[in-house]
Nucleic acid binder design. Sequence first.
DNA 1: CTGAAAGCGCTTACAG
DNA 2: CTGAAAGCGCTTACAG
Lengths: 338, 338
Amino acid sequence: MTRISMKDIARELGVSIATVSLVLNGKDKDGRVGKEMAEKIRRKAKEMNYEPNNLARGLRIGVSNTIGLIVADISNLFFANLAFHIQEQAEKFGYSVIITNTNESNLKLEKMITILKNKLVDGFIIVPTEHGESLIQNLVKRNMPVVLIDRYFPNLNVSSVIVDNYNASKKALRCLINQGCRNIGLVIYKSDLQHMLDRKKGYVDELQNAGLYNPALIKEINYSSITDDITIAMESLLSRENEVDGIFFATNTLSMLSIKYMLDMNIKLYEEIKVVCFDKSDAFDFTSLHISYIQQPIAEMGTNAVGLLVEQMKRKSVERKEDEIKIVELQTFLMNVL
Amino acid sequence: MTRISMKDIARELGVSIATVSLVLNGKDKDGRVGKEMAEKIRRKAKEMNYEPNNLARGLRIGVSNTIGLIVADISNLFFANLAFHIQEQAEKFGYSVIITNTNESNLKLEKMITILKNKLVDGFIIVPTEHGESLIQNLVKRNMPVVLIDRYFPNLNVSSVIVDNYNASKKALRCLINQGCRNIGLVIYKSDLQHMLDRKKGYVDELQNAGLYNPALIKEINYSSITDDITIAMESLLSRENEVDGIFFATNTLSMLSIKYMLDMNIKLYEEIKVVCFDKSDAFDFTSLHISYIQQPIAEMGTNAVGLLVEQMKRKSVERKEDEIKIVELQTFLMNVL
DNA sequence: CTGAAAGCGCTTACAG
DNA sequence: CTGAAAGCGCTTACAG
């Protein structure tokens, strides 16, 4: 079966392709095309099962109505949810979304950007990787609409949607302190990404305020050797001399692996050690575990990112030049299951 | 900044666009283009930062190197993982993947198919919705390469990748019976989709073999009123007169909600009621919960789906007509945490 | 109110 | 070994 094109409809009806195009794009009002003609064309199009070829349309008008979404790991529930909401929102504006994955690899980020650019996406929403700054920079230089999400580069002039990571950490720590914890550990990725630095700083500041800061209780995990590093970190935190009575986990993956370790060691959460995690896991619904967590407004993050991007894409086509960079910083919620 | 095209390179070098195209597509070997010329073109292309326009290429050769993946719910970890593996595998064959979501809605499935077709994806991998049979049928009629995954329609002539749901259920039930359960409940979606019917049949058959079948212990949940229905179902299963000592949950979402309910009710898993779930959740790593589960070979499912699809897409371009429909049925694993 | 024509960026026979 | 030309399906001034 071969696809029906405008040409086929035009031939069938003995009219020009131009007329068909006008009608099928709804530009027949304003008296551009006769009423009966328009009706005839529409009927024929439906009858022949016409479907527009968006590739051709895109080539001609230089727009694909597609957004490229690049996340760090689609199999992480946080990003999966983010993707979900971004897609829902994009659809409302008539955009489809191509989702791709970097697995936290800078190389892959570069590759994904190239692939997507060559498919002519109209803009990008990106969860950038560590050291991915220059790749983003390039995109911006070339006037590509871009919005960063979840993570951002403070030195880069790029619209971004993030949460207030610093205060999220502070909230988490205050919660632990209020519950009587005095020796509170931190499990976090070793990373230069700003959102990690912010989470760390929130931890440090809040503990220093309380006169409880002890740098030995900060455990930095390498993403590439995560299992081993967590074992080492937890062994240290759980050793008797540290007297740790609370731990803050800076990401959901770190939480899950560490809590599993603790349960395997028969540690009683809450009674022996209180914990706060970044992000929710399904597991926390099992209330018997007494796990508090920082909840990010995922839907809002997605909506905002799409909003900012759509704005940029419009602006570009109207050729305005004011570079309105916006950093949207959303607040998190401390969900206390106790 | 305006994109560099082949024309720009050709003009700059005083050669024809055709020559540039040949070189940049690696067709300059076989003595089609002079060695120095080819080198010059390649150097210039790099220097000018040329990047191919795949829209134009796709329009010309009728191929987009893009696969449309339609899942039922990207925020469900099972589908997120599936998407991840499909993408990894597709990339190996040079395809990018557009992921979209139906939210189990038939209407949305139709919309997504239309959108993707108009973007000229070369083929589809689809997790179909209930009653979505005719939509898939249409795609096949139009000679579109399609592979169904996770779910399939027995009456439809479409390649599909599924797991052996019937035997998965049987395994789960045997496990519960062997552990001494005598009154075993089933929590499953009310659905005509074959994979659900298979899971149900496995449950029924295995219990009948053991002389333990009791239809009153089957609870069918409506996707649209899931929370309420689960509450009602669990209340009934946990009521004293039923003496339920084991439950099989037919999907991951049903598992999570039901187990949460049980924990809220202070039911001791394993000691009071033993459970087996379909699919793993992060939560099960918390071994203290004693939850067994059926593990699906997600990566293998993804790999197989891409393989079947690529085969179809190739076949189509060579215009062969043997309709080689393949149903790949993979085996699951019963993961017993005890 | 409708049509002829150019062109988006590319590929592919066909000539030479 | 290289170029001129047609055409993929569409949109958009421009004529009339």
